[in-house]
Design a protein around this nucleic acid. Structure first.
Lengths: 142, 142
DNA sequence: CTGGATGCAAACTCTTTGCATGCAT
DNA sequence: ATGCATGCAAAGAGTTTGCATCCAG
């Protein structure tokens, strides 16, 4: 996906909510969605330092939350406590190394309907289901 | 489960690793496993303040991690970033309210074998699979 | 113009670490 | 007696907040 297309998605989302299109928003969005990987806010901040030296951590955090609200990115947690942002919004799952924190996609369909049904009958509105496998990555398994 | 039984499980686990049985360990363990709910380290610390005023946060954290290692409790994350400890170690899943952070068990069996297989063939050692449903609790759904 | 977005810095929360003391074994 | 566990305090990481300035619409 080239940045033209990405930009247009962001702009459409912002317009729909009457919010402004700004350079930090464009850059953060391109960086996360272009990267095809799982990033922390701190990584985004560090990696955009060259491109936009005036960028501040606070802006990165608020922009990432905004992208999550717009549904362009998904905010999630690693078992080690760090917040990560996933450039994929479609249903997929993750393995996480409990030692080094490495996270990887698991592209396998899992039937979670029974769990969703149970949660709904307990009165919850369920937005999405996410399976997390905990373990050791190839490197840490030694 | 009465605290006599709980204590014995803890003591057995500690002995097996040549570690000491101490009052903070007994109290933290009883508190988490007796509570039948999901607690943060801070909650445990605050709630045990009366019973053992000399208890320190550092000890609560290290004790909870120890209990996790012993398999008596499970350390986990909420999507909002807080680390919580679950008194249940058997396979079960969770719904979490993305607004207030409330977490509730979902006692439904989910077939996660396909995902585990995929992770293993990617070189991971998988310890356990955990499904997390994100949404709004009955109260926050208004 | 005007208010929403930014940048800066400081505050905050949660968690970990270092070290001297104390206690289980 | 021995050294693991504790408590204290301070540091640390990651994230949020307050406020003046700036700029997109």
């Amino acid at each position: 996906m080239d940045s033209g297309l990405l930009d247009r998605e962001l702009i459409a989302g912002l317009r729909a909510r009457g919010q402004r299109v700004t350079l930090p928003r464009l850059l953060v969005h391109r960086h996360v969605r272009g990267a095809q990987r799982h990033v922390t806010a701190e990584q985004v901040y560090a990696e955009l330092a060259d491109e936009l030296p005036s960028l501040s951590p606070a802006t990165v955090y608020s922009t990432l939350d905004l992208l999550d609200e717009l549904g362009l990115v998904r905010r999630m947690n690693t078992p080690r406590g760090a917040i990560m942002y996933d450039s994929r919004v479609d249903d997929h799952h993750h393995v996480i190394c409990r030692q080094c924190g490495r996270m990887q996609d698991v592209d396998v369909a899992i039937d979670t309907r029974a769990a969703e049904r149970a949660a709904r009958s307990a009165g919850f509105e369920v937005a999405h289901a996410q399976l997390t496998l905990n373990g050791l990555c190839p490197d840490c398994a030694t």
